[in-house]
Nucleic acid binder design. Structure first.
Lengths: 253, 253
DNA sequence: AAGGTGTATTCCACGATACGGAACGACTTT
DNA sequence: AAAGTCGTTCCGTATCGTGGAATACACCTT
């Protein structure tokens, strides 16, 4: 069996289906989506609900249970990276007045692990747990710059560089050049490459031996982030990034 | 089988074990804790990691995967309650300058669903996904006040009222009286009943037909929350609670 | 270098266990 | 009243998960 234990794999698919729907689903709806007989779904769902991963609302619908929230949050709390970065994140948010994010690479995407939101009315919003492409975000490009050459090559081969705004980098050659550039500059910009009107600055966070573990980024509207302001933030972030890296056991740089 | 599908139940137990440890665990350690042969744990773990619920670090240890964070966050975002309450929560946090929480009852405990943290250095901190007893928190007592009489009776029978501070209510009779009191007063206090130095005010959020769905609370240090200040906050919160309840479809009150 | 431990992982024959069609009861809809 | 939902329960079958044994690797100690 390719995916290991059948019943477990099916149950996880059910969880994903429940997560993908913004309301609760009935058994038959779940069964339809995961392509299983109702009796099988029912059996799996009742096991899931015994353990609190799923809750059964009165009106015959199943929803994700509180357990998944609990586990997700525990995971974040437990994460060494998150614990270390949190106070810096708050500092960066406070000093810049913009939203700040902690981002890691997961399965070829940028994954938002933690955030501090700007207090301003107009602010960049991103959920924790949100995913975004690597090639068009400042954090993503930082993470790409930590890829080894063959890793980057593989990434470029299996990723379509879709145009999201008129500034999105859509050619592999240009992206390769950008990554080169970022590598010796030490920080990355996103100049409305992902979403119109939003700019972003990111720096790498490195662990021992200098491997890139994550990216720290600041995002805000172009109206507040002029080129000059971005340079300022880049300088500030670079310093913070080095401090964090040192705390994470990085002796280089 | 009491707990339904065996393999799934075992896998969920493995997830819980991984969540309960703040570092990654090796296969043999996992096997020891869930009392399963290593080969079985291995099979389940590899299925879990195929679906991203578990990640395998290089050095032979398994950790919860990003999927659980993603799902947990999706759950919160999707939740109707959370979406409705969020803006009010920010408002309450801003107006009072203290931490504000959205809390629901889950399995006889208070479950923290969302929060806004105080900007002050000294502030009440609680994680999203955190659990606390019902009997000694303002939110918890609000949630108890929404229990039907037989539900409350059952709760009192199966819960030990452990003394956490010198103000903790530890007799069933006193708690029953407190709940009665809260029911017609419409808000609850926690006067250092749970943690020394911390006070709290909570109001109920009701859905259609007036059933208590959740509690909205404000927590801060006793030094800033004088009795007079608490009364003020209680008045303010009561109004906000009614607004939210109306939005949640509550026509009563 | 040999012998010990501790890991993680793969294999396989056995039989427990999960499977899914069918049947049920309680609903709406036609 | 009939035909469609829906969720849930039952049960005989064979599939699928099981766990011990074997393997492989890394690390100690002797």
């Amino acid at each position: 069996m390719a995916n290991g234990v059948q019943s477990l794999d099916r149950a996880l698919r059910i969880l994903e289906v429940l997560a993908s729907s913004d309301r609760g689903l009935g058994i038959s709806e779940v069964s339809r989506r995961v392509k299983l007989p109702a009796s099988t779904s029912h059996r799996l769902l009742s096991t899931l609900s015994h353990r609190g991963f799923v809750t059964q609302l009165g009106d015959e619908t199943y929803q994700l249970g509180h357990k998944v929230v609990e586990m997700g949050q525990t995971y974040l709390e437990a994460s060494q990276l998150c614990r270390t970065v949190r106070p810096f994140l708050e500092n960066v948010g406070g000093r810049t007045g913009e939203s700040a994010f902690l981002v890691v690479a997961d399965r070829g995407e940028a994954f938002y692990v933690d955030k501090v939101e700007s207090p301003r009315m107009l602010r960049v919003f991103s959920r924790i747990g949100h995913r975004a492409p690597l090639y068009c975000t400042a954090s993503g490009k930082i993470l790409l710059s930590g890829y080894a050459d063959d890793q980057l090559k593989r990434y470029l081969k299996q990723t379509r560089l879709i145009r999201l705004t008129r500034n999105t980098i859509t050619s592999a050659a240009a992206l390769r050049a950008e990554v080169q550039n970022i590598r010796h500059r030490g920080y990355a910009y996103d100049l409305e490459e992902c979403e119109g009107g939003a700019r972003c600055i990111a720096v790498p966070l490195c662990g021992f031996n200098g491997r890139v573990l994550a990216a720290l980024s600041v995002s805000g509207p172009s109206s507040r982030l002029s080129r000059k302001k971005m340079e300022e933030v880049a300088g500030f972030l670079t310093g913070v990034g080095k401090q964090i890296s040192a705390q994470l056991g990085c002796s280089i740089a």
